[in-house]
Structures are given as structure tokens and as C-alpha cells.
Nucleic acid binder design. Sequence first.
RNA 1: GCGCCUGUAGAUCAAUUGGAUAGAUCGUUUGACUACGGAUCAAAAGGUUAUGGGUUCAAAUCCUAUCAGGCGCGCCA
Length: 558
Amino acid sequence: MNLREEIINDILKSLNNEVSKEDVVVESPKERSFGDYAVPCFVFAKKLRKSPIAIAEDIKNNLDESKYEKVEVVSGYLNFFVKKEDLTKYVINKINEEKENYGKSNIGENKTAVIDYSAPNIAKPFGVGHLRSTAIGQAIKNILEKNSYNTVGINHLGDWGTQFGKMICAYKKWGNEEAIRKEPIKELLALYIKFHEEAEKEPSLEDEGRAYFKALENGDEEALMLWKWFRDESLKEFQKTYDLLGISKFDSYNGEAFYLDKMDGVIEELKEKNLLKKDQGAYVVDLEDMPPALIMKKDGATLYMTRDLAAAFYRKKTYNFDEAVYVIGNEQSLHLKQLKAVINKMGHDFANNMHHVNFGMVLQDGKKMSTRKGKTVKLHDVLVEAKDMAKTYIKNADSVDVEEVSRQVGIGAVIYNDLKNYRTNDIEFKLEDVLRFEGETGPYIQYTYARIMSLLKNNELKDIDFEKVEINSYIWNLVFKLYEFNDIIVKAKLGYDPSLLAKYVMDLAQEFNKFYGNCKINDGDDNEKAFKLKVSNSVAIVLKEGLRLLNIDAPEKM
RNA sequence: GCGCCUGUAGAUCAAUUGGAUAGAUCGUUUGACUACGGAUCAAAAGGUUAUGGGUUCAAAUCCUAUCAGGCGCGCCA
């Protein structure tokens, strides 16, 4: 059943196909009393040389109106009212049959998508800035799977680059092995900051750092040993953050260093195709309408771009992806554009299937947080704080696993806060907003779910006679919302936009709470009671599944 | 300087991508469990959509100018 399509087809038929399918826009009116669906007829007016109202009337007259509860013409709009009983029966039965599989789409069948996300930088704190890529990326991965895609989640670790030369340099000058073993990230960060402070006074340090990176790329043993040590210690610490977030593992942890021996092929191909140009000692690829892409430094060391190129080719070869999604911040827009442009210039059209899913920065006092100046808020600290805060809310401590539930709720708040708004907006980091559990927050939705579960605990679900059921406006809003779940799954995929799903789940929870607050559910005759319980159960199933896609747990008690 | 992005209630964000009376949440004020979980519900107040001009049946949305902010622009990632 696809109501939107039926309406489009009905209209095309009524107008003898004098307009094309693309002209027919089926909207959901903002004022529900206008109808369940609305079609503005103004667009037809020019083609048919008639007034919109007359056209709307024509369509209505030629239409098989018995399919709908009601069709109305109001000031140029054609408003459709769906038959409530039919849709209710269909939706409720479908959800109770399909359970958590409800809403699945097959648009990605036999397709593979590679999602590059999270990607924290080794030897630097896992800051709140990196939550965005992690949360958005994980949600997109889940949403793609719900659309039947095969997915490959890649944590493209920032584990290579000049910064490691600087780090090694700093360690050799001021480092202390003991201290690093104790608190690796903290010490390494201190070294990194010191390096930049000193470099400001003594610019030659920068060259020294670059030389160490060059040595690293050339396979210098001591440098490699230090690098590996930093990497191992960092990963151990990152895992604690992933555990709290409930992200068990990525399909691949191949970071930048992994492509060390895979860059030559790319450089060879660039040379062969005559795209590489020497400029001021460095090698670049010239591009139209944008600055050239830097491929190799004058000392022969590679760059971010070089490794990203190698990664793109490796992923195409290894996974043969239909789509590659890069969940990376706005500030790298130019880099991603250049990356695609270079691949296109090399004559590979898979660049067209690479998508930059960009997002806004996390700001503090309106400014970017700078690792170099030590101005980052550690994500782990925020998550722990959220968890502790959640603990204070939990009431009946004897029947719930307090540790686990407070983790779920606290983290739910943090993740929801990150996903609820459209990605590309910059967000100001305010701890008090992140730790809110009331209103438009993750815990609000979790609470709604827990409430339904408690309602269902002592009442078993029974079969319903749909003929005898009364569908009030609260229930109808819920049913219609439930029906739209599949639309949202598809739309969220097409726009790579988890916020659509986040808003949907919120809407559904709000509608349910209105229903709950205004109608007694466990009341009425047997059939009515069973009906209301089954609607509630359907809401619970969709809430839980929606939250799961956002990587938020739904505890049964909280 | 050039390029990209943003500007909507006191705050944080929506607005079906050009559609009907611009909606939520927080905060403020008021009300609701001897009823299924008060992390809830019901309600009030709060807007010249940064500003000026334009495009059309229709503009928060498109074009244009101005103002304000953010990001990026060769050897960082």
C-alpha cells in the first residue's frame, strides 16, 4: 500500500495524463483538519489554462471518491481524507507481524556502501568534536542497512602525517616514558602543545618535526617504534569511549598509515596520465575552478590528499562500492571536492558515487576548539558526566541494572542531542544542553517507551475486531505517523540525514504522550482496551527500532 | 582579497525543498495523579523570518545589493 502513489495515479487518470507525474506534489498539510494529504493545483493551471479551483473540481468529479473517506476542494487545494479503518487495520497488523523489520525498504538491495566515519586522531584527545562524525556516521550506517544496503564501516584513523614527526621530535626533547605509560593521551597532548608553543619562538622546530616525519615514512626504526607505541596506547583509550557509546566495532580500522605502501600506484598513474606537475618543488595536480591539489611535498613526503586518493582506490577495489560516504566536517569541503576532481581527471567515474556528508563544527564561545592550544572538551568526560546525571533520575533502583540503564539514558541524551538537528549547522557546545533529560531529548523518547512497556507488562495482547473499533483523533494521528515510518527511512537515506529520523521518533513519542495523557488506555470494553494496547505496542516497536537506528538503547525500565 | 556556508520567539532549532494561519522544545507564568510511570500532560505570553529591492497566483525558502558571523584558500589533517 502506497497512498501517495495512489493519489498521484488517481490525479493523472482524472486529468487524462495531461500533466506529468512530476507536476503532482502530494503534501502533508500542516493543519491536520485540512486532510491527510493535500495536492496544490496551482501548478496545473498554466498547462490546462483553467483556474486552479476549476481544475481541482474537475479532478474531484472524475475521481473514484469511494476510495477515500472524503475529498475536498479548498481554495485551490485538493484535500484527501484517508479511510481510517482500512489504514488502521493495515498498519497495526503489519507492525505486529513484521515487528522490528517494519519500515524496511529495499532500495539498496545488492548494493554496497562504504561509510567513512569517526576517525579520531591518534595521540590526541577524543574530543566532543569527534562525536559528530561518530554519531552521524553510525546512524547513517544503520539507516543504510535498514534500506537493505550491505555496509562497510571504516574508522579512518588519523594515524599518519607530519604531526607524528612533531610528536616524536617533542618526545625526544622533553618526553618521559613513565608519564606516558600512565596517562598516554594527556602526556602526548601536553607534548604536542609544548611543541607548538616552542615552535612559535623557534620556527626551525617545524623543520625538525617534518624531518622526523620524513624519517618515519622512510622506515626509520626508532621513529616507527615510537609511532606504534603512541598508536597502541591511543587506541586502548579510544575504546573506552566507544564502549560507552555502545559502538562495538568497525568493519575496518585501516587508518591513514595503512595506505603507506599503496600510494605509489596512484602517483604512478598520475604521472602516466600526465597530470602531475612540479610546482615550487612540490608535486600538484591542477584543477579547474579550484586550487590545485598537493600530492607530494618538496622533501618527497606524502600528504593527506595522497593517502585519501590511495584509500579511495583501495576501497573501490576491495569492496567495489556503489556508494562511498565520507562523514567529515564542513571545513574539509574543498579537500573532498579536490579529491573527487582528481579521481575524475584520472578518468574514473566512481568519483561520482563518493559523497561528502558534511556537518557543522562544535564551537566553544563561538569559536573552533583548537587541539594545539589544548582547548578541547574530552568526549569521555562528557559521557561519564551524562551517565552520572542519569543515575540521579533512576527511582526504583532494586529492579533495574542501574549502571547499564544510566549509561543507556545518559548516552541517549548525548547522542540524540547531536542528531536532532540538521547536520550542517554549527553547534555551540553547552554542557547543560547536552545533559538535559526533559523536553526534546533522547530520554523523553526512552521514557515514553518505558512507559508503554510497563503498560504492556500486565496486559496481554489480544486479537481485535477492527470493525467495532473507535478511532479518535489521538489514535488516528498515531496510526498515520506509524504509517509514515517507511517514507522517513527512505528519505533519511536519500538525504543522508539522520535528523529526519530523530525528528520522526520525537513526533511519534509526543503524539503518544498526548494520547496517554488524554485517554485512559486500560479502559473501555474488551475490544477497545485490546485495540488501544495494540496501538501502544505498535508505537513501542517503532520507537525502539527508530532509536536503535540512531544508536540509542531503549531500556524497558528507567 | 577570493570561494563556500549561515542569519527565523529571550535561547536552541523546525517549516513537507516555492504552498494554506511560520511550528516545537528550553526558559517565564498558570493548571493537572485517593487513574495505566509527573523524565509526563493541558494552557498562556512571546515573530515586520538581519535589512532594502526584485521575480509570481504564492517567498523564511529563488535572484540581487547591503550588514553581521563562521569556515576554507601549497607543502597540517
